[in-house]
Design a protein around this nucleic acid. Structure first.
Length: 179
DNA sequence: GCCAACGTTGGC
DNA sequence: GCCAACGTTGGC
């Protein structure tokens, strides 16, 4: 096992595929990525078990909606082979696929999403790829420290939401650590 | 809808 | 290899 990041962030427009869709499907192929750097990340660096922040872009507000996990290794993105498909790419051939995808499994939907504004405000996340000017990568690395900082924020959010309930706090209601 | 910041394409 | 034109991303 290499020393590369085991934490990632993926972007998706919720109108096309949201955290609720992933919760419903339990897992999904992360197809349609048509950027070489993102492709390389999926092909070369992601492995089953890696932890993933699930980000809603072009949303109101944009932000991290929950957690996912890599459940399937990189394989050819079959949508590139289908001339009828929106993401068809004639360059990609079965014997030498241009585009790859991994499979993602649902872990958790946050009670309240962590908005982009909030991510910019809190400490410890200044270096996140997501927050860099002009950053548009749809699959990007996250450091272990950044990942745990975000779980910390999510955990605070989860306990805040519990204070509105009338029954006793249930300690198991915190975000589950995936390991 | 606007538009900044990229990434890709293709003529040369 | 250069770079202008074009297409896309994604916040606002």
């Amino acid at each position: 096992m290499s020393g590369k990041s085991r934490y990632w962030l993926v972007k998706t427009e919720p109108t096309s595929y949201s955290i609720d869709d992933l919760a419903r499907d339990h897992k999904t192929y992360w197809d349609g990525v048509r950027n070489y750097q993102a492709r390389n990340t999926m092909r070369d660096d992601m492995s089953v078990g890696d932890k993933v922040l699930f980000y809603h872009s072009n949303a109101n507000p944009p932000g991290i909606a929950g957690l996912a996990v890599v459940t399937g290794p990189p394989i050819a993105d079959h949508t590139a082979f289908d001339p009828e498909h929106k993401h068809f790419d004639p360059k990609s051939r079965h014997d030498r696929p241009t585009w790859m995808m991994i499979e993602l499994g649902f872990v958790q939907k946050f009670d309240r999403f962590i908005s982009l504004d909030e991510l910019r405000e809190v400490s410890g996340l200044d270096d996140m790829v997501l927050l860099q000017k002009g950053s548009r990568l749809s699959v990007q690395p996250v450091t272990e420290a950044q990942f745990h900082r975000i779980l910390e924020i999510a955990s605070t959010i989860m306990s805040e939401s519990l204070t509105y309930q009338t029954f006793p706090l249930n300690s198991s209601a915190k975000p589950a650590l995936i390991s």
